[in-house]
Write a protein that binds this DNA or RNA. Structure first.
Lengths: 185, 185
DNA sequence: GCCATGACCGTACAGGTTGTTCAGTATATT
DNA sequence: AATATACTGAACAACCTGTACGGTCATGGC
């Protein structure tokens, strides 16, 4: 039963030289999918589930990490479990004197600012913030408005999150198709 | 040198009965901080770095996971490494016939929709989406507008992300203060 | 057609880690 | 004073990791 499993025929064609930059093949995709819903399993277990050799999984993981596709395996913290039940988006108007960066630096010092982007359109920056309550939200917003360079802030509260942050569907479509579990074993 | 290390005096006071819901003490915070910037280290290594017994780290992790503070350790995927270089925020106006949910379900079927919230204010929903290029963005937006119930979509492109999604500062302030590395050992 | 290359497989070994259990000690609560 | 909880330190077997090796196969250049 040694050579029963057919090799992936035209792998090199997909990854070899061309397409190496963004390439993600099905195995990569399945690996990511597997790790996404059972993150604590090890390399060996992955190899068993995916039906490939351990070294292969190891190599794939290394390459995915190296290419930056997998940025890390840090713990995902749920702010609401820490008492930060309110999420809001704040659009900032910024005094166009010295650009966004000094503002961003100040924003970064506010723990409740979870994320900040510079944007096109009506506003200049968009921030995601959290707070312990609507009252607390006011406090956070005040802090933001107090930042040098911020002219106006308009806030929108997130009521529900029907689609939670996710990337798997993206991986799935980048890998081309169905990433369901293992072939056998 | 057995009992040299002073115990954390008033731990029970913080966690015991009251405050148990959101409580995160400094050790929890340090543990999370540690795992955040070196996610692949194991329980044993954590215990060494934090200067506590292995069982303690294990217990803390279990409890944090159980309480939902740590949602998981899934791989963080960088969409831009997959070729999705463009990030945008789309505010949706929804025909108020049957609520948001049917719309959310449709949105969830679009891989490029990374996140979706229902919101207060001018719009009804706010989505974060990604695309391979500005052209591709048009395609994604079209898909969104095609969703039954979506009346209008106004899009804002994220140009830069000076503050990347983060939760550590939150943990730091929830745990009360400085979470820097280990005490000794 | 031949060979170098890259990806994969299967195997092997040492060393470290995990899961688990246990008794012992300190602190806060009753 | 008794009890419950949290932590320590130690022990054990089972397992996994890092690493290395030789072997196979398909691709692409010579």
């Amino acid at each position: 039963m040694a050579t029963a499993r057919p090799r992936n025929r035209s792998r090199r064609a997909e990854r070899g030289r061309a397409g190496e930059l963004n390439g993600i093949d099905q195995l990569d995709g399945r690996l990511i999918a597997l790790l996404t819903d059972e993150p604590r399993i090890g390399v060996l277990e992955c190899s068993r589930r995916l039906g490939v050799a351990r070294g292969t999984v190891q190599a794939r993981l290394d390459r995915l990490a190296e290419r930056g596709v997998i940025r890390g395996f840090g713990p995902e913290i749920d702010p609401s479990a820490l008492g930060y039940d309110v999420t809001a988006f704040v659009t900032l108007q910024i005094r166009q004197v010295r650009g966004h960066d000094p503002v961003a630096e100040r924003l970064a010092e506010i723990p409740e600012v979870i994320e900040a982007h510079t944007i096109t359109g009506a506003g200049d920056m968009l921030c995601r913030i959290v707070a312990r309550s609507n009252q607390d939200l006011q406090r956070v917003i005040d802090q933001i408005v107090d930042v040098q360079g911020v002219e106006r802030a308009s806030t929108t509260i997130a009521l529900a999150t029907p689609v939670r942050q996710r990337t798997l569907p993206l991986v799935r479509s980048a890998a081309g198709g169905n990433l369901d579990s293992a072939p056998r074993r």
